[in-house]
Design a protein around this nucleic acid. Structure first.
Lengths: 188, 188
DNA sequence: CCAGCTGATGTCAGTTACTGTCATCACCCT
DNA sequence: AGGGTGATGACAGTAACTGACATCAGCTGG
């Protein structure tokens, strides 16, 4: 047995999600999170840059999944379809952790600071998608627009998925939203 | 002469922009901003919800301009074109205050917290555009997508406008970005 | 012309997020 | 066995933000 209980980071994430759900983000102090995890406040800040970041640990791996999917698509595929494949892959993964994802999203929806953090994560994702497209030879501003459009499609689909209790298939909702975007932008 | 110098709010905005530019957002305290404006820290927080908000005073009027433009477009115009007209109007207004806008954007670009605030303002704008479209009879999810797409187009165009010292015509850049989005989404 | 109300500001104490610094101590390596 | 390493604790300090109360110029009704 080690000197400390293992997985301090995971315990902090779990304690934070619980407390944010139970009494709200504002009504939770970092000291309380650390205490529930059997650690001190100082240690919390060694694992997470701030009180918000503890909810966003999975973002990096999801972004990697999307970028990897983009990179491995056949060279002939149209950019917007490549992006579609990437975010459908992310949607499928999210669906596997449906309960945790929904709980997390309820916490975020209740607090403006957390929404800000979520938005900058999505903006980073859009940038990463654009970079991956440029890697495939897509030029600007098309690459940047496709990245932003992809994230917009994801957000709309995710929102619909969250709002339905039973939950339709998320990748399918993403595909439908992408088709809708095509229809909307085709006008004029 | 009144008991206090007039336009406390404006003085705080001016002092904040100056200090954020001179030494950076992080290296500026609210007490310093208040002091330069001839006020106290407590008064700063009576005018602005937090240290970030002092940079985002003009957002409301810009959003109103866009929504008003949307509402007054001919009923037959396609949704995406209506949105285009709205954000071109906003672009024209921003261009009038080019110097201040560029200075402000340089400050925001240098700090992640400020970028978060900017993003949530843009998300609010996307929501307002979607609501205005629904008012015109556009159904979901097209309204939501058009709102997000409009903001994406604006961001790309604004970014290009900022990055060019001389500065091309912003409404024209917006139109070009919208055309690009059409081209990108038409693929696949 | 005065008494009281109003509204913007000042003052002050308090909470909490976040940081810097140094101490501790099980584990590992040689 | 002895020294290095890395995660943690302890503690002091800064600054954002809040609540409560005091102040006082100007307006308003009588």
């Amino acid at each position: 047995m080690g000197r400390w209980e293992p997985n301090a980071r995971g315990r902090l994430e779990k304690a934070a999600l619980e407390l944010y759900s139970e009494r709200g983000y504002d009504q939770t102090t970092v000291a309380e999170i650390a205490e529930r995890a059997g650690l001190t406040e100082r240690t919390f800040f060694r694992h997470f840059a701030d009180k918000r970041e503890v909810l966003f640990g999975g973002q990096d791996s999801l972004r990697e999944l999307i970028v990897t999917t983009l990179a491995s698509a056949p060279g002939s595929t149209a950019p917007i379809e490549v992006v579609g494949a990437g975010i459908r892959a992310a949607g499928a993964t999210l669906q596997e952790y449906q309960d945790r994802v929904r709980q997390r999203q309820a916490v975020i929806a209740a607090n403006a600071e957390l929404q800000e953090r979520e938005l900058i994560k999505l903006a980073t994702l859009a940038t990463a998608i654009a970079a991956a497209l440029r890697q495939r030879g897509v030029t600007d501003p098309a690459a940047g627009l496709a990245g932003q459009a992809g994230v917009a499609v994801f957000r709309i689909a995710f929102e619909r998925w969250i709002s339905q209790p039973g939950g339709r298939d998320l990748p399918q909702l993403i595909q439908e939203s992408l088709d809708e975007l095509r229809a909307v932008t085709a006008g004029g």
